[in-house]
Simulated assay, not measured.
Amino acid sequence: MKGLKKQRRIQIIVLAFVALAVATGLVGYAMKDGINFFRSPTQVAEAPPPPSETFRLGGLVEEGSLIRGQGEAITFAVTDGNATIPVSFTGILPDLFAENQGMIGTGRFIDGTFVADEILAKHDESYMPKEVVEALKEQGEWKPEATN
């Protein structure tokens, strides 16, 4: 009787570990497209990601780089003070999007240009995304009096 209880307990423990491993694998598989890593322009310039990888690029919109093309096509450059990455975007930019302001874009790096699917801009005159602040601090370009 004791051997049967011990065997049953071991079976339940093994089954619980297998179920936990399967659940963890399914959660990871479901989230793989939803996880986008943040990179600064310097990180992208030093180690360009493959064109198949979707990631977030953030920095300041470079002064004088904003060019509006035909329709909703827009090109500009994003910088962190150390490196500059050209960006192309087709769509409507947020109202607060402007040169020398913080932005974060989600997209892919194709042929030396960040092709953005989504652009986010600061939401008021004192806000800058946390990732952009950290990247600017690393490059020595952080100006705390201009942002929060």
Results as ranks from 00 to 15, higher is better:
Leu26Trp: 08
Leu4Ser: 14
Ala30Pro: 01
Arg56Glu: 11
Glu46Ala: 15
Val61Gly: 09
Pro41Glu: 05
Gln43His: 03
Ser40Met: 07
Glu72Asp: 14
Gln7Val: 15
Leu96Ala: 12
Ala23Leu: 13
Ile85Trp: 05
Glu72Ala: 13
Leu20Gln: 07
Phe37Lys: 12
Gly59Met: 04
Thr84Gln: 10
Gly81Gln: 06
Pro94Ile: 06
Pro49Phe: 03
Thr24Phe: 13
Phe97Leu: 11
Pro41Ala: 05
Ser52Thr: 14
Thr42Glu: 09
Gly69Cys: 11
Ile74Thr: 15
Ser40Phe: 00
Thr90Tyr: 11
Thr84Pro: 11
Thr24Trp: 09
Leu15Lys: 09
Thr75Pro: 04
Lys32Asp: 02
Pro51Trp: 03
Leu93Cys: 10
Leu57Trp: 05
Thr54Lys: 10
Val44Met: 02
Leu20His: 03
Gly105Gln: 01
Val27Gln: 07
Ala73Gly: 02
Ile104Ser: 11
Pro94Tyr: 02
Leu66Asp: 11
Ala73Thr: 10
Leu26Asp: 05
Gly91Ser: 03
Gly71Glu: 04
Thr84Arg: 15
Arg56Ser: 13
Ile12Glu: 10
Gly105Lys: 01
Ile10Ser: 07
Ser65Ile: 05
Gly25Gln: 00
Gly59Cys: 05
Asp95Ser: 14
Glu99Lys: 09
Thr84Ala: 13
Glu46Arg: 14
Gly64Leu: 10
Ile104Cys: 02
Ile12Gly: 01
Phe55Leu: 09
Ser52Glu: 15
Ala30Met: 09
Ser88Lys: 13
Gly28Phe: 14
Pro49Glu: 08
Phe55Trp: 02
